[in-house]
Simulated assay, not measured.
Amino acid sequence: MAQTAPLIPRLVASSIAIANRAGEIIRNVMSKGDLGIVEKTGKNDLQTEADRSAQRCIITSLSKQFPSITIIGEEDEPSDSPVPSDWVVSEVDQDILRLECPDNLQQVSAEEVVVWVDPLDGTSEYTQGLLDHVTVLIGIAVGNRSVAGVIHQPYYNYQKENEPLGRTIWGIRGVGVGGFEPKAAPEGQRIITTTRSHSTPEVQATLDAMKPDNILRVGGAGHKVMLLIEGKAHAYVFASAGCKRWDTCAPEAILVALGGKLTDMHGKEYSYDKNTPFPNKGGVLATGKGENHEWYLEKVPEAIRKKLV
């Protein structure tokens, strides 16, 4: 069945198994105590041994199974870095292969696919022990659209006894989502999630204009979108250019597959083709299923909108 299924379901089925292994690697690095932290561009842009190792696991595994796809990872790693054999994943999630693929994704070729990888989203929080903020993101794009995504939470349930550690969720546009129980956000309130460590006056002014009842300041784009799909927040608002394509490709696909929306602050969807610039210069606005995305767009101050181009 694995070889007869269309490419996109096969990619998602493999990405689920690969993300699970990357999560184990992230936990193993933490358990050893030496995170191998380096600063990339500043104190809030860190890289750890877990970032580097998880990316090598993901990219090597995907490249071996799908040699003709384009893969773009966050971390700058030498291509000849040795990869332990037990990091190279060949397993797949058989349940995904049984799903009916929508017509528009049936005939996708490997050359049309770009996979965006953030091996450890929420690195700063990882180094500070805020482990529930950490995710592994594997986003799948066809042409310039994000069509499927996998989010793995290595530390899901880590504070609970006798519960399985870790969770992987997925979404495919036109198919649906899995791995979690979607929930609606509370009625009669406006709860917004935003950055924990990259706030600016523009970010705060935009939040103020939306008059939220509560603001959840957390790390990681994956974690923020998880708050939307689990009904803990109504919108994710980040009026800044600090996000990248590998931060949003997987979360966007899952959110849209569920009925939500993710755009920049002008209401434009981001392009995910292999030649697109990495930064999300227009900021990020994401809303959960049933939310009025246009209402949030209209509340963005015009002066701030003009800066995000």
Rank of each mutant, 00 (worst) to 15 (best):
37 I>R: 05
308 L>Y: 06
303 A>P: 00
5 A>V: 10
131 L>K: 10
37 I>L: 06
56 R>I: 02
205 A>C: 12
188 G>T: 04
35 L>R: 06
144 N>G: 08
277 P>F: 01
6 P>T: 09
14 S>D: 08
5 A>K: 13
93 D>V: 07
280 N>A: 11
280 N>S: 12
225 V>M: 02
51 D>L: 03
158 Y>S: 13
125 E>N: 13
260 G>V: 00
28 N>A: 14
43 K>E: 09
214 N>L: 15
231 G>D: 02
291 E>P: 04
96 I>L: 02
276 T>Y: 05
70 T>V: 14
53 S>L: 13
83 V>A: 11
4 T>L: 12
125 E>G: 08
9 P>E: 12
50 A>G: 11
58 I>K: 09
141 A>P: 00
303 A>R: 10
89 V>T: 08
172 I>T: 03
202 E>S: 15
148 A>E: 09
242 G>E: 04
22 A>P: 00
58 I>H: 12
134 V>P: 05
298 E>W: 01
241 A>P: 13
252 E>P: 02
158 Y>C: 14
122 G>S: 04
181 E>Q: 14
136 V>M: 10
288 G>S: 11
91 E>G: 04
200 T>L: 01
251 P>I: 09
279 P>L: 01
66 F>I: 08
124 S>K: 15
36 G>Q: 04
139 G>K: 00
133 H>Q: 13
153 Q>S: 11
4 T>Q: 14
287 T>W: 03
284 V>G: 08
85 S>D: 14
17 A>C: 08
2 A>I: 14
147 V>I: 14
53 S>Q: 15
6 P>H: 06
64 K>G: 11
305 R>G: 07
255 L>P: 02
110 A>G: 08
142 V>L: 07
297 L>G: 03
221 A>F: 01
171 G>D: 03
179 G>W: 07
173 R>E: 11
136 V>L: 06
205 A>Y: 11
132 D>M: 10
116 W>R: 05
73 G>R: 15
65 Q>T: 14
197 S>C: 11
78 P>T: 08
236 Y>L: 08
206 T>S: 14
83 V>P: 00
53 S>C: 06
